[in-house]
Design a protein around this nucleic acid. Sequence first.
DNA 1: AAAACATGCAAAG
DNA 2: TTTGCCTGTTTTC
Length: 329
Amino acid sequence: MPEGHSVHRIARQFERNFVGHPIAVSSPQGRFAEGAAEIDGLEMRRAMAVGKQMFLEFDGGAWLRVHLGLYGAWDFAGEILVDPTIASANGRMGQTNQRGTDPIYDDAGENSLASIGAPRRARAHVRMSEQTRGLSDDGDEWPPPVVGQVRARLMTAVTCADLRGPTACAVESVEQVEAVLDRLGPDPLVGDPAENEERFVSAVRRRGVAIGQLLMDQSVVSGIGNVYRAEMLFRANLDPHTPGRLVPTDTVRQLWHDWSRLLAIGVDTGQMMTMDDLSVDEWRAAMASRDDRHWVYHRAGLPCRVCGTEIVLEEMQARKLYWCPTCQR
DNA sequence: AAAACATGCAAAG
DNA sequence: TTTGCCTGTTTTC
């Protein structure tokens, strides 16, 4: 579900609330019992995100690798440092997020862009997924009751993180982690920027595969998913079927810089803001009038926001691809 | 109330 | 190539 920005935000939660503490690791569901036993009680050293993969390092050199896949999610509870962009979700602590959407759009008081600032520590329950992000007040019990299928539970003395429905959750050696990292393309937030850009450019220019497929290929570039793909191609006025080697180098570099920018915005705000070129007023109006906040994603059959042409929906590699045949060529 | 669907990936066949 | 993940939201009956 989450694209790269969410995973970076989750890693940040672990950095703030778990790194430097001994962690009680268990698997209420049982499917991670063996792995949990390997790292139970060890101190967490480091939390790191690369694309959609997250890595947690423990004393002794073992790593926990997690990939959320389509509908995995982390729930944080207890006394955790709450990111203001999350805290603003409900306006006030102790309310459930009624809309289940990202409330930064709300005009009410503290629910504004201005609320982005330093995190604060609070007793809270935070769900880190795209659909539901917000606080609830039903987290008074300690430890929190296990709800549903909890694959892994990580606890310090005062904080708890529950993992549900991941595609991958495994304890791995340094070598195994390096093997995973080796097949991942560059992530704008990891490593040397210039080197990352060159890796991306050569990976794209080398291939005859459609750019729409290459952007989703995690060995070409890390962290881009179906939403960012569609939006980036539109922002670049690029036909998704253009073979990588036929995309002008300048355009490939533009794609890289656009991804770097969108990812940074996503990590800061917790949202996939791909219409950042709009003025704040335009953007608020767009958000308020309909539920869609994108140029083309999820807009099949609707008129293109720029030229009015119907947005096309097609299947590419078993994923839905949205694009404007007039603007993108 | 029930069914369909989703911002992905890995493992199984 | 197909299935599992087994959640949360949206759409349909």
